[in-house]
Design a protein around this nucleic acid. Structure first.
Length: 198
DNA sequence: TGGCTGATGCGA
DNA sequence: CGCATCAGCCAA
């Protein structure tokens, strides 16, 4: 079942980030279907989160989509190279987002290998937000894409990750955020080999 | 096996 | 100027 708008418009972005483990992320880009199960996410909580691009309700051309009603894509460039894919959540005006950091690849393996310029399937195919976007074909062209459409979408396939398999740890790469860098808002599936870091 | 570094574009 | 990254390098 495709995740409906109501999944994304709920207020608790940390809970949504956790619930997204075990959901499936799919793209149909350049005519190719690719995707797999989400195994790693991070929550970014709007105005009160120093690690969030919308901290203090900062509003620029880049962050504008974050204030949209939940269920759209926020894609931005980092380090001049990588397109990071985020899922916007909460109601209009509340700029929360979930960064999807890794999936367990399932479908479109050949296409993902081509996009990554890899010969064989290895864990780093989709482990990490930069390379995951490459494998799935996600770029800034998909900024604002409606996630209830047919280009990028998520599905619930009835899989629930048991609580004891969900690791809850601080987020990666946000040391500049002061105390907020300590918030345990990164979630991943314990023991899963497709997670970006141990 | 782990730490360091360069690549690279744009937002603030 | 520094970033929600990654791969390749080198020392050990």
């Amino acid at each position: 079942m495709k995740l409906p708008r109501e999944f994304y418009t709920r207020p608790n972005v940390v809970q949504i980030a956790q619930e997204l483990l075990g959901k499936y992320l799919y793209t149909t880009i350049d005519g190719m279907l690719t995707g797999g199960m989400i195994v790693e996410t991070e929550a970014y909580s709007g105005e009160n989160d120093r690690a969030c691009h919308a901290h203090l309700n900062r509003r620029t051309a880049r962050t504008e989509i974050m204030y949209h009603e939940g269920g759209v894509a926020y894609v931005y460039l980092v380090y001049g190279i990588y397109n990071l894919f985020n899922i916007i959540t909460n109601i209009e005006g509340r700029a929360d987002a979930v960064l999807v950091r890794a999936i367990e690849p399932e479908i479109g393996l050949e296409e993902m290998l081509l996009r990554r310029d890899m010969q064989t399937i290895k864990p780093n195919l989709t482990a990490g937000p930069g390379v995951m976007s490459i494998a799935l074909g996600i770029t800034r062209k998909h900024y604002g894409e409606d996630l209830t459409g047919n280009t990028i979408w998520l599905e619930d396939k009835g899989i629930t990750i048991p609580d004891e398999k969900i690791m809850t740890v601080p987020r990666i790469g946000i040391d500049y955020a002061g105390d907020d860098a300590l918030l345990p808002w990164r979630f991943y599936v314990k023991g899963n080999k497709w997670v970006s870091r141990k």
